[in-house]
């Protein structure tokens, strides 16, 4: 799993690539919690995620809860089919705000 962090205006964008699984999700979790710790709205780009498991989903949920507790927000953008399937299985596709593109995400969350 690879990741990249960028900023656009006041929004932090975290992009992941590859498999987010039991082996890599501890890293993903750390990255996500770092991002929401900046107290800025966070967009998580999942377009390049080829696989995400329950531990990856759990990290996303934890980050979302932390963001909302801190008065901020977290949204998902460009969710890959593989990631969307797992979100649907977890019935979390209605809990997260999901945008088709980074641009739409910036407009929605910024």
């Amino acid at each position: 799993m690879e990741h990249q962090i960028s900023e656009q205006g006041n929004v932090v964008i975290a992009s992941f690539e590859g498999d987010v699984d039991i082996h890599t999700s501890p890293d993903a979790r750390k990255v996500l919690l770092d991002c929401v710790g900046r107290k800025s709205p966070v967009l998580v780009d999942l377009s390049q995620v080829s696989y995400i498991d329950s531990s990856g989903i759990a990290s996303l949920v934890e980050a979302l809860q932390t963001a909302r507790k801190g008065g901020s927000d977290l949204a998902l953008v460009a969710v890959s089919d593989a990631a969307l399937r797992v979100l649907q299985l977890a019935r979390l596709d209605k809990v997260f705000s999901i945008y088709d593109t980074v641009e739409a995400g910036l407009e929605g969350i910024g």
Binding site: D53, S54, I57, A58, V61, E62, V86, L89, A90, V95
Partner: peptide, 18 residues
């Protein structure tokens, strides 16, 4: 229970679902 949204405990549910 899926109404209880929190990290963890999801895996078994996934298996049963698919």
């Amino acid at each position: 229970d899926l109404d209880d949204i929190r990290p963890g405990g999801l895996g078994t549910h996934f298996i049963a679902e698919v």
